[in-house]
């Protein structure tokens, strides 16, 4: 199973409570550029919410140091100690949900902690679960395929 932040774009009113909560929690300051969720204003009072879906896991595949892994609840996590700050994960994220703050060494992303859900004024965010998919299993299959086996002789 995969725990993730389910996004309801149609309900979002762009109040930015979520980004404030998130950046306060992880950076101790209110700065949308330091939030692990992004609110993109569209036309006609609509908004598009960006946060990791925890499922595609291309960043897990791409990370050269395996600093990006999947925890027991199916959430993609970054180990700051292992991260070398190359930002390859930022480049491969297809939905732009891997963020970095210019000059800071480590990228950051939504870890489905749910803090923003509690402060959302419009019920646009929800912590949910979903089944594993072929995409979500891929990093493990690739690693298994190449792992060094014991020598045959």
């Amino acid at each position: 199973m995969i725990k993730y932040l389910k996004l309801h774009n149609d309900k979002c009113v762009g109040c930015l409570n979520c980004t404030a909560t998130c950046s306060q929690l992880y950076f101790k300051e209110d700065d949308p550029a330091k939030a692990r969720i992004k609110i993109l204003p569209l036309a006609l009072g609509k908004y598009h919410i960006v946060a990791c879906d925890q499922e595609c896991r291309r960043c897990v595949i791409e990370c050269p140091t395996q600093a990006i892994t999947v925890n027991a609840r199916g959430v993609v996590m970054i180990n700051k100690k292992l991260c070398v700050g190359c930002l390859a994960c930022v480049a491969v994220c297809p939905i732009g949900a891997m963020f970095y703050y210019p000059g800071d060494p480590t990228p950051f992303k939504c870890v489905a902690c749910g803090a923003c859900v509690k402060t959302c004024s419009a019920d646009a965010l929800e912590i949910a679960e979903k089944e594993d998919s072929p995409a979500s299993k891929r990093p493990f299959e690739i690693a298994e395929a190449v792992r060094k086996k014991e020598a045959t002789t």
Binding site: I61, P64, A88
Partner: peptide, 12 residues
């Protein structure tokens, strides 16, 4: 396939 086969970190 699909491995970060750089000869130094960060070579995509």
């Amino acid at each position: 396939q699909n491995l970060p086969d750089g000869c130094w970190y960060g070579c995509t």
